[in-house]
Design a protein around this nucleic acid. Sequence first.
DNA 1: ACACTCATGTAAGCTGTTACATGATTAA
DNA 2: TTAATCATGTAACAGCTTACATGAGTGT
Lengths: 187, 187
Amino acid sequence: MPSLRYFVLGLLAQKSMSGYDIKCLSKSFSWLIGSPSTGSLYPILRALLEENLVTMEVVPGLGKPPRKIYSIAETGTQVLQAWIDQPLASDAPLKAFAMRLLLAGSVPPARLIAHLKQRRVQVAAHHAALIQAAGTHVEGMDLGQRLTLEYGLAMATAELGWLDTALNRLSAKPLPEKAVQSGTLTN
Amino acid sequence: MPSLRYFVLGLLAQKSMSGYDIKCLSKSFSWLIGSPSTGSLYPILRALLEENLVTMEVVPGLGKPPRKIYSIAETGTQVLQAWIDQPLASDAPLKAFAMRLLLAGSVPPARLIAHLKQRRVQVAAHHAALIQAAGTHVEGMDLGQRLTLEYGLAMATAELGWLDTALNRLSAKPLPEKAVQSGTLTN
DNA sequence: ACACTCATGTAAGCTGTTACATGATTAA
DNA sequence: TTAATCATGTAACAGCTTACATGAGTGT
């Protein structure tokens, strides 16, 4: 589960980059994923290099500090694939899913669709659990619990909606399952 | 930033409970918040007790193991308030917001509204940043980046929508007199 | 007989952050 | 000259998880 390690490896699979580049790129998605600190990023890069999962080339900067450009190696792609192939835990947080989503380019289309479908099942389960929680003990719930429940439902509904549209776009055939009403996510 | 510590304290502010109760309750919201492991929960409870932020009473179980019921102490409410009063960081993850939302019962209405407004501003900023990222370099983006961007936009839009409805509901009813006395509430 | 829920706790370890340290280049 | 961006790195530590350990009752 050292997810950052594989996340970095995955980014290098998309494109050869320096540690600094990785920081900048992940900052764009920091709301979902959070960007790694230098204290974790650089040691990870060195470890990946020592294990021969990546290669490194020093590119002297033109009026800038020299940059260490890392590229994924053959062993690295295999290790990455093995990591991506194992499904996410059912209680995986949004962050873990978003991390894998960002690596979609390294995933064969069929597997990508499988991942999204699996996520759909898990989010639907959490959605159902929240609805059930709302039904069983609404009486004894305080303001915080009620607000959080609503918030969770809104988020889950939105995610289900997005997953459905994304799946429709990515796959030619229509979904056999009943589509979720997505009126709540319009704005 | 030992958020779990204050989260536990906050739950005890809502209602006196045992460690086990806290685990069960937070499991209901585990998708958003994640439920603390025993390895963190029980040591936290002991620490809170030793610092006199909570009190403890052993209730012998009837045909069940005895339970240790923790209640918040006066010092605890003060410490909790001080923690809640400081605003969330602008890059605070969804999880951090949901944690505070669950403690809404301990927050005076005016402050709760201020928190939601502040969150709205931050989510709107991230939403705008994603849109801008989409505009500036759509060309050079791979599948993963495009999907993650869409996903982030869908989530941010949904959250903004929920925040707006929640704010409308919360600010509608309670204001017979002037509820606003400090300028920090407005945003 | 076996496994599960209720209920507590500890020890070792992993993952990641904070804060520091370096140094060159460019803009106010 | 002061600060900011680019670019790399380390050491100390915080925070949390995993896995283990205990034990009574309850269900199959």
